[in-house]
Design a protein around this nucleic acid. Structure first.
Lengths: 185, 185
DNA sequence: AACATAAACGGACTACAGTCCGCTTCTATT
DNA sequence: AATAGAAGCGGACTGTAGTCCGTTTATGTT
């Protein structure tokens, strides 16, 4: 990691403080100045550690995203290896909807900054790779379909469907699964 | 429209000036202050007319979106009425990709502002309604699938696929069509 | 322990979206 | 034509993301 201990400590404090503040008042209602003040550091320190607001959101998502990745690689089937591709696609969709349900705010924050920050994140690449692998295994074109399926799992779309249109997570997951399986037939 | 002639005139000038500036330097590189100055009005006038940046983008998109809507309602099949639903879905996808190709920047701008501005726009509702009608006609669930298909046509995703991943419009349209037809089978 | 130096810090500063409200201009009415 | 009131205007102001750079501090070296 960072060579200096104080930097690691500050980063850790920022992550903890951000988690708390975001939980208390909603990510969208916490400014970077407030976060800096609450964590007792200068604003520059946040930006040194995380680059920008999207980077902070991505860092806060990191743990949950790693867990899901772990499940995909080493978990029990059908999420992990062993089950036929269509079932694994369904399991992934459900797991990702659970992630959305818990962290929409962060996921949306991670998208808001300058064009396509999230698409270039490591986690997003992992989801794409996973779906691409399943596609190849199932004999399906793997170049664009993974991105399109992930498009149906977009954060602001999910929030819109949940909050404005009133659909429950299960129904959304069912519909996304239907779309995904339509191409994995 | 507005009751006052000067307001209509200012709105028109703003639309023309914005079109020109956006074309010259890219929408993302034109600030609201610059636009106001270039159009010779105060900044408040922009906000009175368009609400916010997303509203301005939506207004600039209006003409092209109306054309597409017109094509859906009164155009020749397969875009217009008369062809079987799956063919009409394909035609819509291609037409929408053409719209994206021409106006990604504006479409992305129309999404950037506060949560889900675009989802609540009239045009987006029209696309959803259109796909929902086709779904019903084809005996397919129409509650969520239209939104998910539109999710695969998201502006920032499209830009990412075009600019970062290097796919040409045709391939993207093919893939989206495949996804859409997968559920409309 | 003292030092050199690179890493990290912090807060003033910039640029920008969006708000607010006192002032101006249009227009319907007489 | 004069007028009153509503509609619209404009630019100073606010809040916030992100940058910049002079100052401070951690750490490896002697």
């Amino acid at each position: 990691m960072s060579s200096r201990a104080d930097a690691r400590r500050n980063r850790q404090r920022l992550l903890e403080t951000a988690t708390r503040l975001f939980a208390e008042r909603g990510a969208a209602n916490v400014s970077m100045d407030e976060l800096a003040a609450a964590a007792g550091v200068g604003k520059g320190t946040i930006y040194r550690s995380f680059g920008d607001r999207a980077g902070l959101a991505l860092a806060l998502l990191d743990e949950s995203e790693r867990e899901l990745q772990e499940g995909l690689i080493r978990g029990e089937p059908p999420l992990g290896p062993g089950a036929p591709p269509p079932e694994r696609v369904g399991a992934f969709v459900r797991a990702y909807v659970a992630l959305l349900e818990e962290h929409v705010d962060l996921i949306v924050e991670s998208q808001t900054a300058s064009a396509g920050a999230r698409y270039r994140s490591g986690a997003h690449g992992a989801w794409r790779d996973h779906l691409a692998l399943l596609a190849r295994t199932g004999g399906v074109d793997d170049s664009l379909l993974p991105d399109l399926i992930l498009g149906t799992l977009d954060g602001s779309l999910y929030r819109h469907l949940r909050e404005n249109r009133g659909f429950p997570p299960d129904l959304i997951a069912d519909a996304v699964e239907l779309v995904a399986l339509g191409v994995f037939r």
